[in-house]
Amino acid sequence: MDIHHPFGFDWGDLVAIFTLIGVVATYANFAISHAAKDTNRSDFEQLTASIAKLNETMIKVNMVLDSLKADRESTNRRLDKIETTVDRHDIQLARIEEHVITKEDKQ
């Protein structure tokens, strides 16, 4: 092997070959990273759209939950009023029964 002609090439040819290999490697690296950035950008845009839809859905769910809470509170108030009325009627019924029993005992 001749030191002035390694692998049968002149030094200028070897420099050209290594430069060509370097340029091809740099281009491949650039193409891969550019494709990765485009893919990441596309995925990020899809994720952003999905999050926006999820946010809209959560707003609607919160509105429905607030409506249900208001309905439940209204129902609870009505139930409390009905229970109060039933208690009053029970007391009146007990008084009437007591009055009837007292009249029966007098007879």
Rank of each mutant, 00 (worst) to 15 (best):
residue 25 A to C: 07
residue 25 A to W: 03
residue 53 K to I: 11
residue 20 L to K: 13
residue 64 V to Q: 15
residue 29 N to K: 07
residue 89 H to N: 07
residue 1 M to C: 02
residue 34 H to C: 06
residue 40 N to T: 07
residue 47 L to K: 15
residue 1 M to F: 02
residue 11 W to K: 00
residue 28 A to C: 03
residue 43 D to T: 02
residue 4 H to E: 06
residue 34 H to F: 05
residue 11 W to A: 00
residue 87 D to T: 08
residue 1 M to Y: 04
residue 99 H to F: 10
residue 102 T to W: 09
residue 61 V to N: 15
residue 30 F to V: 10
residue 107 Q to G: 10
residue 30 F to S: 10
residue 34 H to W: 03
residue 53 K to T: 14
residue 61 V to A: 10
residue 99 H to L: 07
residue 69 K to M: 06
residue 86 V to E: 02
residue 54 L to N: 13
residue 78 R to W: 12
residue 19 T to A: 10
residue 63 M to R: 09
residue 94 A to V: 00
residue 96 I to W: 11
residue 68 L to E: 06
residue 43 D to P: 00
residue 13 D to W: 02
residue 54 L to K: 14
residue 51 I to S: 07
residue 59 I to T: 04
residue 25 A to P: 01
residue 36 A to R: 10
residue 46 Q to P: 00
residue 23 V to C: 06
residue 46 Q to R: 12
residue 98 E to W: 07
residue 11 W to S: 00
residue 45 E to P: 00
residue 105 D to R: 15
residue 104 E to Y: 09
residue 37 K to P: 01
residue 82 I to V: 15
residue 50 S to A: 10
residue 53 K to Q: 14
residue 14 L to P: 00
residue 56 E to N: 06
residue 17 I to E: 03
residue 20 L to R: 09
residue 79 L to H: 06
residue 26 T to M: 06
residue 49 A to S: 13
residue 50 S to R: 15
residue 90 D to F: 15
residue 102 T to K: 10
residue 52 A to M: 03
residue 77 R to T: 14
residue 9 F to C: 00
residue 6 P to I: 01
residue 32 I to H: 04
residue 97 E to Q: 09
residue 65 L to N: 03
residue 95 R to D: 05
residue 79 L to V: 04
residue 29 N to T: 13
residue 42 S to V: 03
residue 35 A to P: 00
residue 31 A to I: 06
residue 16 A to M: 01
residue 80 D to M: 11
residue 11 W to Q: 00
residue 98 E to A: 09
residue 54 L to S: 12
residue 87 D to P: 02
residue 51 I to V: 13
residue 49 A to V: 07
residue 99 H to A: 12
residue 14 L to C: 03
residue 84 T to P: 02
residue 3 I to T: 08
residue 101 I to D: 15
residue 102 T to N: 13
residue 50 S to Y: 08
residue 63 M to V: 14
residue 42 S to K: 01
residue 61 V to G: 04
residue 10 D to N: 12
residue 9 F to D: 02
residue 51 I to N: 07
residue 52 A to H: 11
residue 76 N to I: 15
residue 80 D to R: 08
residue 99 H to Q: 10
residue 75 T to K: 07
residue 94 A to L: 03
residue 69 K to N: 13
residue 49 A to K: 12
residue 27 Y to L: 04
residue 100 V to I: 15
residue 19 T to W: 05
residue 2 D to I: 01
residue 62 N to T: 13
residue 74 S to Q: 14
residue 96 I to N: 14
residue 18 F to I: 06
residue 85 T to R: 13
residue 101 I to E: 15
residue 88 R to E: 12
residue 17 I to V: 04
residue 15 V to K: 04
residue 87 D to G: 04
residue 78 R to F: 12
residue 15 V to W: 07
residue 39 T to G: 05
residue 78 R to H: 13
residue 81 K to L: 15
residue 17 I to Q: 05
residue 43 D to R: 07
residue 45 E to W: 04
residue 101 I to Y: 14
residue 40 N to G: 05
residue 29 N to C: 07
residue 82 I to R: 11
residue 4 H to V: 05
residue 85 T to N: 14
residue 65 L to R: 08
residue 41 R to G: 08
residue 29 N to S: 10
residue 74 S to L: 04
residue 40 N to F: 06
residue 28 A to W: 03
residue 24 V to F: 01
residue 86 V to C: 02
residue 51 I to H: 09
residue 37 K to H: 05
residue 15 V to A: 10
residue 27 Y to R: 01
residue 66 D to G: 11
residue 98 E to R: 11
residue 104 E to H: 08
